[in-house]
Design a protein around this nucleic acid. Structure first.
Lengths: 190, 190
DNA sequence: GCCTGCATGTAAACGGTTACATGATTCG
DNA sequence: CGAATCATGTAACCGTTTACATGCAGGC
């Protein structure tokens, strides 16, 4: 959240969209977290609020003309930037992501004969779609957002996704071949 | 859990180890889940218990000689196999796995200049280690476990991990190059 | 006798999603 | 006017992890 607010001051609603549009392929946050966390960050002095819900006095600057209203826009504070920088300095944890398709594949012999092939088809379609999305995002990043100073890092994250999806399509080919020859046979005919 | 019990009847303790040794790179379960779920599966008639905690009568067969005792071993029932097969028939969901390292990288411009490079180094080491583990697992699967009928599917899952880790090492090279040239420069010297 | 590993379980806390409630604004 | 979207929030629920409690068995 603090990271997102370095891109621009945002409302809770904006943050949700930011997560959906920018980092959705590797991170997600729901309203159920966003609003409580904003409240907490504010109480810790890591963000400040302006607009609708900015109860504390001194929030509305001189000529600010009540803009749109009803929105509460949050900005990161210097303290927030320090906390963010500290977090960025800690090594990232490599936690085990649960991959449901692998679990099903692992036990696929216990299911219908064509099951594994179906899973793989589905999986291939998913990653083909992702690569298409990635290409569109890349075009946008190299186009309109090319001047943003964070752009190189954003492209790095994108590249991660592309490498993974390409590798997984290659795996699909391999898996398909294996499943259609030795894999499925031992159950039925043969 | 039902899937694991098709491999062999197991105790809760065995299940934990099964998850740790076989599928740990894409799935994990803790005791806090295993024991309650076993209880529930049993109440639904999807598994049966033998040994220590097998309260219901008729569990100990004729010449079974109280083996080791204090263990409660669970076996999958025909009903359990049906439920498992039904689950295997449903398409797998592609949920967003949270990748912390990408989040840090995405906002890396807000941290220390060398931060991104450090994250990548760490990440590379992690996937190199994984590839080593995968190689050992592959040897075991092609060796002692080669005759197991599920082995082809297990190798497929393993191959997934190998494809991903190899792709990520390639990404590390690319990312490193980008971070050490254009990436880190605009903050300090230059 | 003690340490390690086997073995079973539970309670509290945590992190997260879902669903719902509410209402303002904008645009066709 | 009505629909879509902007916007804020909360409560209930669910899945999961962590930490703890307990005790037996086997080997040194």
């Amino acid at each position: 959240m603090l990271g997102a607010l370095t891109v621009a001051p945002m409302s809770g609603y904006d943050l949700k969209r930011f997560f959906e549009e920018s980092v959705s392929f590797f991170w997600a946050e729901s309203y159920g977290q966003i609003y409580p966390i904003l409240k907490q960050l504010r109480s810790e002095g890591l963000v400040t609020a302006t607009g609708a819900g900015a109860a504390a006095r001194g929030t509305r600057g001189a000529g600010q003309a009540a803009p749109s209203q009803r929105r509460t826009v949050y900005s990161i504070t210097p303290g927030g930037r320090r906390v963010l920088a500290a977090w960025l300095g800690e090594p990232a944890e490599h936690q085990v992501g649960r991959i449901e398709v692998l679990l099903k594949l692992f036990f696929a012999r216990q299911g219908e004969p064509g099951g594994a092939a179906g899973l793989i088809d589905d999986f291939r379609a998913h990653h083909e779609a992702r690569l298409t999305t990635y290409a569109a995002t890349e075009a946008r990043l190299r186009g309109e957002h090319a001047d943003r100073p964070d752009a190189p890092y954003w492209l790095l994250a994108l590249s991660y996704g592309q490498h993974v999806s390409r590798a997984l399509l290659a795996w699909c080919d391999e898996a398909d071949a294996r499943v259609r020859t030795a894999g499925e046979r031992p159950r039925a005919d043969a």
